[in-house]
């Protein structure tokens, strides 16, 4: 399945004049969600940037039906909505659109519960690596070394690997995606939409305000995260794992863009650019990330190329 840009639906899925900051990755991502899934979608949005991006009632800047819900309850509210639609005999995609805090921190319990129950919903974590809506505070998904307003000298811990945790839940579908690669993200959403059960997509969403970069560079930074090997793109479907085609070349460390190219675009890393030992720690994180990827590949690749068939069938 290849996404043809010219054939994507041309509808205002994000309403112009919404309250997102210039260069916002979340509004980019939301457009792709509906380009991929169509109109038969209900969004559940917990507290976060996307609750504010909608703008001021009685208008909403996101062209979806939306149930806004308290921070910790997105996955459970979505479970209930799906159950209701099923009882009514309606086939509706119930999609959670939650930030990294709403996913990996305060909403984690509800997410884990819904994943374990294999609720028939699509959960998208739009990961901008901190509490941006409240003013750039660290979350468990903020990466090592990043400045935030609660980690003034840089975060001392590494990023929590939520998609790997979701694979461990035994859910049907897990994928990582980046707003820098819309076609890849759309393809993944379309594949996910054909599967029943709990589906999780972790979307990297570089935030110009919180990461301190030029708002024109959102796509570029999102691509560099992949090209440096920091954020590998992959899919896991029902026991089969594969690296996404655009990310495969970065399996080879020599083909990766040096991580400093990524770091130096972002003010949040300014304090560590001339500290080689700090950069080394980030490089080690990349190496460990790929060790895990290789383990997943080895564990979840089945003989006889069945893996590829699984993907091609969708």
């Amino acid at each position: 399945m290849v996404v043809n840009i010219r054939k994507l639906p041309d509808k205002p899925y994000i309403m112009p004049g919404n309250a997102a900051c210039p260069g916002c990755p979340e509004t980019m991502g939301l457009r792709y969600v509906k380009m991929a899934l169509g109109d038969n979608v209900v969004l559940v949005i917990p507290a976060g940037c996307s609750s504010v991006i909608q703008g001021i009632a009685p208008r909403s800047g996101i062209n979806f039906p939306i149930l806004n819900i308290v921070f910790a309850a997105a996955a459970s509210a979505a479970s209930g909505m799906k159950a209701a639609f099923e009882q009514q005999g309606k086939d509706v995609h119930v999609v959670v659109w939650a930030g990294d805090g709403g996913t990996g921190d305060i909403g984690f319990q509800a997410l884990s519960g819904a994943a374990e129950r294999d609720e028939d919903i699509i959960y998208i974590c739009v990961d901008n690596e901190a509490y941006m809506n409240t003013g750039i505070q660290r979350s468990s998904l903020t990466p090592y070394g990043a400045w935030t307003t609660t980690t003034w000298t840089g975060k001392k811990e590494h990023k929590k690997n939520v998609p790997a945790i979701l694979i461990s839940h035994g859910v049907k579908y897990v994928a990582t995606a980046s707003v820098g690669y819309p076609a890849d993200f759309i393809e993944k959403l379309q594949r996910a939409s054909k599967i029943r059960g709990f589906r999780y997509i972790h979307l990297l969403a570089p935030c110009p305000i919180g990461w301190r970069f030029d708002p024109g560079l959102t796509a570029k930074v999102a691509q560099l995260a992949v090209q440096t090997g920091l954020f590998p793109l992959y899919e896991y479907i029902n026991g089969v794992f594969r690296l996404s085609p655009i990310a495969r070349r970065y399996k080879d460390p020599k083909k990766r863009v040096p991580v400093t190219e990524y770091l130096k675009l972002q003010g949040r890393y300014k304090h560590l650019l001339n500290k080689p030992e700090e950069i080394r720690k980030i490089e080690e994180y990349i190496e460990n990330t790929w060790r895990l990827i290789e383990a997943l590949e080895k564990t979840f690749t089945e003989e006889g190329g069945r893996g590829e068939q699984v993907f091609r069938a969708l």
């Binding site: 309403m15 112009p16 004049g17 909608q54 009632a57 909403s60 800047g61």
Partner: peptide
């Protein structure tokens, strides 16, 4: 009820930003 409908300009004429 706290309801909205999708419409342009929920944050005003953002071209002025």
């Amino acid at each position: 009820a706290p309801l909205s409908r999708p419409a342009p300009g929920s944050a005003g004429r953002t071209g002025t930003w």
